[in-house]
């Protein structure tokens, strides 16, 4: 009969459940569907905060705070750190290595969902007994009492597990340096022997319109120098190509300048000229390595 007393929850909790539940499910779906790992991590952090609110609403005050501190505070930030380490620009490839794997996986997920929902639908639940009795002396003292009496062995084992995990992580991510570090002279000699770019790389974009570093510099023959832009920018597709119309407008500008100064056509410096033999930037590569 005590069950009947607390069978119904308040309307406020129902509203909270439906609103926050929708947010949690959307966050979970975004975690799975968004291509960039950083976006997925942020969506997961949002879902975890919503779950913390659910814990608080269900009378698990200690767990709610621990969820925010440990999960969103520590674990998700650890994820973000590793993402920064591994490379943020690395998006998931859309190429399927196994044929139809995505479709099959989605079907399996759907099947699992149907099984779970059908299984839960079989049971009948009276309602909440409520934690007012168990939480009488406060949620944290009640949990502490249980943790240090009935579950004390599990608590100790978990403590040992955490210690082992910390040692294991340090051991795994530690790298012993086997070979001697190269001196600066040795590095320089190696570069010369390898015949790679010896002088500093050419400076990027000369058209300071917005962000000049995303514009390749122009070689004397009018072709963009590929070496002058950061490879990361090119990988992300953030490099601005210097198209023929930009070159044409540059030529027009120079023509106007020449007309203004009353110079003749021949004197005008050559910018947009004959097509180069090699591709842009190649003449920098072609430098002979000194013997």
């Amino acid at each position: 009969m005590q069950l009947l007393a607390e069978t119904a929850t308040s309307t406020g909790e129902a509203v909270q459940f439906w609103v926050l539940g929708t947010v949690a499910v959307i966050g979970g779906l975004c975690t799975v569907l968004l291509r960039r790992a950083v976006h997925a991590a942020l969506c997961l952090a949002g879902t975890m905060i919503v779950l913390a609110l659910f814990y608080l609403a269900n009378g698990a005050y200690f767990l709610g705070i621990v969820q925010i501190v440990v999960y969103t505070g520590a674990v998700m930030m650890l994820f973000l750190f590793v993402l920064m380490l591994v490379g943020v620009s690395a998006a998931d490839s859309l190429k399927e290595t196994l044929k139809g794997q995505r479709l099959l996986a989605a079907c399996c997920g759907l099947g699992l969902g149907i099984l779970l929902v059908a299984g839960i639908g079989q049971i009948s639940v009276g309602g909440f007994t409520g934690l007012s009795e168990a939480n009488a002396g406060g949620n944290v003292p009640a949990i502490a009492t249980l943790l240090f009496t009935r579950y004390v062995v599990a608590f100790e084992v978990v403590g040992a597990l955490l210690t082992v995990a910390a040692v294991g992580a340090t051991l795994l991510s530690h790298r012993e340096r086997i070979e001697r570090t190269k001196t600066q002279r040795e590095q320089a000699e190696e570069r010369v022997r390898g015949g790679v770019q010896l002088p500093p790389l050419p400076a990027p974009g000369v058209y300071a319109r917005h962000n000049a570093v995303d514009r390749p510099a122009l070689l004397p023959d009018g072709t963009p120098a590929e070496l002058s832009v950061n490879p990361t920018l090119r990988q992300r597709g953030q490099i601005r190509e210097v198209g023929p119309e930009a070159l044409a407008s540059l030529a027009a500008l120079e023509q106007r300048t020449a007309d203004h100064h009353g110079r003749s056509r021949e004197e005008r410096p050559r910018t947009q000229g004959n097509l180069p033999e090699g591709h842009g930037g190649s003449n920098l590569d072609e430098q002979e390595a000194p013997k």
Binding site: G21, G28, A37, L110, L116
Partner: peptide, 21 residues
């Protein structure tokens, strides 16, 4: 709701390639 979130997570494990995700 817990079952739904669990299903989404399980499907994600099967679908995604990036080990971190």
């Amino acid at each position: 709701l817990a079952a739904l979130l669990f299903t989404i997570g399980a499907a994600g494990v099967l679908i995604r390639r990036n080990a971190i995700v």
